[in-house]
């Protein structure tokens, strides 16, 4: 059940590198026209759990306060509901900016951030291997990667419910390995300077 033979799923850069300057410049470009109206913050269903409001974070990015931004949990709390993107009076794709920050943080050298990216990384590792995502295997590998013995307990009631309903499936579906060539090619393309 180990995935040791697969290369790391950090597509951006070598693990351990500082956030990619070109990537940071791209996110800055996305929010360059922000006029600090705060519609994004007022619209965000998860703002209550964030340490920086989205409005404040965009400004900090433009000021180059990258370290502060990457130490915040704000962008990890984006659930991609697209309400801010829909309502932004400047028409800025703010949900895409949140995802770009997740990518940059995952490729940076901060261990806490790399851990927060593990769910997405394990998800895509599962897709690469199985062609179609196998939810049961995904959660299993996610728990292993998180190395937190208490985490699986939080999801045990759900696991038991799904088991009773015949919804837990181990093993691959019919497309195992089908995405290996595409993943390989994308990895090669994104590694180009």
């Amino acid at each position: 059940m180990k995935n040791a033979t697969l290369p790391p799923l950090t597509f951006l850069r070598e693990p351990g590198a500082a956030p990619d300057p070109a990537g940071l410049a791209e996110v800055q470009d996305i929010v360059r026209a922000c006029m600090q109206c705060g519609t994004c913050t007022a619209s965000c269903p998860n703002a209550h759990a964030m340490d920086l409001t989205p409005r404040r974070m965009w400004r900090m990015l433009l000021f180059g306060l990258f370290e502060e931004v990457f130490q915040s949990r704000t962008f990890w709390l984006c659930s991609a509901c697209y309400t801010c993107t829909l309502r932004c009076p400047r028409g800025l794709p703010l949900t895409a900016a949140m995802a770009a920050l997740k990518r940059l943080a995952a490729a940076g050298d901060d261990a806490a951030n790399r851990k927060k990216a593990l769910f997405y990384q394990e998800f895509m590792r599962n897709v690469e291997k199985n062609g179609r995502v196998q939810e049961t295997g995904l959660m299993f590998h996610y728990f292993l990667a998180m190395r937190d013995p208490l985490l699986p307990l939080e999801y045990t009631p759900l696991g038991l419910k799904l088991l009773r309903k015949g919804k837990l499936h181990f093993g691959g579906g019919g497309q195992r390995g089908a995405l290996a060539p595409l993943f390989g090619k994308v990895r090669e393309m994104e590694a180009r300077p």
């Binding site: 995952a106 997405y120 895509m124």
Partner: peptide, 9 residues
């Protein structure tokens, strides 16, 4: 899950 991992993918 894909957008937080790879833009091209």
């Amino acid at each position: 899950a894909v957008e937080p991992v790879s833009r091209l993918l």
